[in-house]
Design a protein around this nucleic acid. Structure first.
Length: 471
RNA sequence: GCCCCGUUCGUCUAGCGGCCCAGGACGCCAGGUUCUCAUCCUGGUAACACGGGUUCAAAUCCCGUACGGGGUGCCA
């Protein structure tokens, strides 16, 4: 029975960022790899910014991705008593104190200190207040926050599984607030208390939290615990150009990838590869294979740039590896959203099997076969494909020949008009796109012989004649 | 400003002192297969940030510089 316990603890203040998903994934992978427990904890101590909608969305995204958790979700907003009690104990032990400075006062003094070349941060004004002084301020109507007293000297050091020893001078970390003046606990406190009480043994999170670890560790000690969980700070995911990954680089929320037709398994696969790789160098991996291969020790320490192209390639690989029946049901919602009324299932299944080899997203598959479920007179002809068609010298002859052929030929699964094109003295390969454009609406798509067959004689002729007439 | 972390092809990476004048993958380019395109196959392009050490030997260890990222909040 494994004692290993990990948690994913997002703040519900917006959509789930792709970087957060990677964090969730690594926690989940390690938990599953070692047979540990994966806990979901919602860090909603900032009541003003947290929303129920976001809490719901986090869960639905994780379900969709298949990142199932074993415990939770625990809401920190429901555990304020525990945090406040812990804060009380630290105050009683002298590790923290009531601070009556307002946020603005602290900021102004900090900025002034920086201007004068001194260290910024809290100046410790309320550190040694007597009981009488505190009473006086309370009488003035000032609300108190609780500030944790950080050591004045020495270093804080912890061992990071990915980076080795991480160390910082205590003098650069000033006393920090653990309970706001409105009585609500702050992240550092809630995080320390929960990791302690929930028996978290491994903390995997983004590198942006590396500095906060010193504070959390100090709080643990103030709470009487000397043991340290295993920490591993993962490199951040950057956008193209090395800047922070943001909207302008494309989709940053999982929902957007879902809507664009990416598979959960491909997204997981790609995200896993961003900062980690299996020992044998394989790159296309199922979730089960990821679990089997995942090694925390092999996670990289340098940030990775998100590359949408590689994700697309991987998605194509996953699509191709999928059993047809599964793919059919995965594409169905996309088809319904596009042409629900004309959809016919047997033809749809056949078309999916043809599209499987030639698409990188589910949306693309649905788009590629749209011509099958569009009324003949509604077929839209792609502009550049039409241009290409017009540039073919004998396009009219080709269309006439194919029309003649389709009118007469015996109907099979493959309507192959190459022979009549060849009789024109034209190389079929050179003008194939003319038929594609006429029948499918664009020069590239599902194999045309099967497409014509599926469409039927009448529809095919209608489209070919329409193109011929338009020339 | 101060503190912390990082730096191998355009991108993701292999490499943890000799097997590396650096391997794989995506992308890109060229050729082949094929019903155009795509898939698939073959080949090609391209990197150890810089400067000092340590060592018989460094992409790998140490120091410095440069660059990038993060933190410096009564956000998480």
């Amino acid at each position: 029975m494994s004692q290993v316990r990990l948690r994913f603890s997002p703040a519900p203040t917006g959509f789930l960022h792709i970087g957060s998903v990677r964090t969730a994934l690594y926690n989940w992978l390690h938990a599953r790899h070692v047979g540990g427990t994966f806990v979901l904890r919602i860090e909603d101590t900032d009541v003003a910014r947290s929303t129920q909608e976001s809490v719901d969305q986090i869960q639905s995204v994780m379900h969709w991705l298949g990142l199932e958790w074993d415990e939770g979700p625990y809401l920190q907003s429901a555990r304020f008593d525990a945090y406040l009690g812990a804060a009380r104990r630290i105050v009683d032990a002298g590790g923290a104190y009531e601070c009556f400075c307002t946020e603005t006062e602290v900021r102004e003094r900090s900025e002034a200190a920086m201007r004068e070349g001194r260290a910024p941060g809290y100046d410790g004004r309320c550190r040694e207040l007597t009981a009488a002084e505190r009473a006086e301020r309370t009488a003035e109507g000032r609300a108190a926050s609780i500030r944790f007293r950080t050591p004045d000297e020495g270093r804080s050091t912890f061992t990071d599984l990915i980076r080795g020893e991480v160390s910082v001078e205590w003098s650069t970390i000033s006393d920090f607030v653990i309970v706001r003046s409105n009585g609500t606990p702050v992240f550092f406190l809630a995080n320390a208390v929960d990791d302690l009480e929930m028996g978290i043994t491994h903390v995997l999170r983004g590198e942006d939290l590396i500095d906060s670890t010193h504070r959390v560790l100090a709080l643990r000690r103030a709470l009487g615990r000397d043991d340290t969980p295993v920490y591993a700070h993962m490199p951040l995911i950057l956008g193209p150009g090395g800047a922070k990954l943001s909207k302008r680089h494309g989709a940053v929320s999982v929902e957007e990838y879902r809507e664009a037709g990416f598979l959960p398994s491909a997204l997981l696969n790609y995200l896993a590869l961003l900062g980690w790789g299996p020992e044998d160098g394989r790159e296309v991996l199922t979730p089960a294979e990821l679990i089997a291969e995942f090694e925390l020790e092999r996670v990289n320490s340098s940030p990775a740039t998100f590359d949408a192209r590689k994700l697309e390639w991987l998605n194509g690989e996953h699509i191709r590896a999928m059993p047809l029946a599964e793919l059919v049901s995965a594409v169905l919602p996309f088809a319904r959203a596009r042409y629900a009324t004309r959809l016919d299932i047997p033809r749809f299944e056949k078309a999916v099997s043809l599209a499987q080899l030639r698409a990188t997203t589910l949306a693309q598959i649905a788009d590629q076969m749209a011509f099958l479920f569009t009324a003949d007179h509604d077929l839209e002809i792609d502009a550049s494909s039409w241009e290409k068609l017009e540039s073919v010298e004998r396009a009219a002859d080709v269309l006439d020949a194919v029309i003649g052929f389709v009118e007469e030929c015996p109907w099979t699964d493959e309507i192959d008009p190459r022979a009549v094109i060849e009789m024109l003295g034209v190389k079929p390969g050179k003008v194939m796109h003319v038929i594609y454009t006429a029948v499918e609406g664009r020069s590239q798509g599902l194999p045309i012989f099967a497409a014509i067959s599926m469409l039927g004689r009448e529809s095919s002729l209608y489209r070919l004649r329409a193109a011929r007439a338009r020339l």
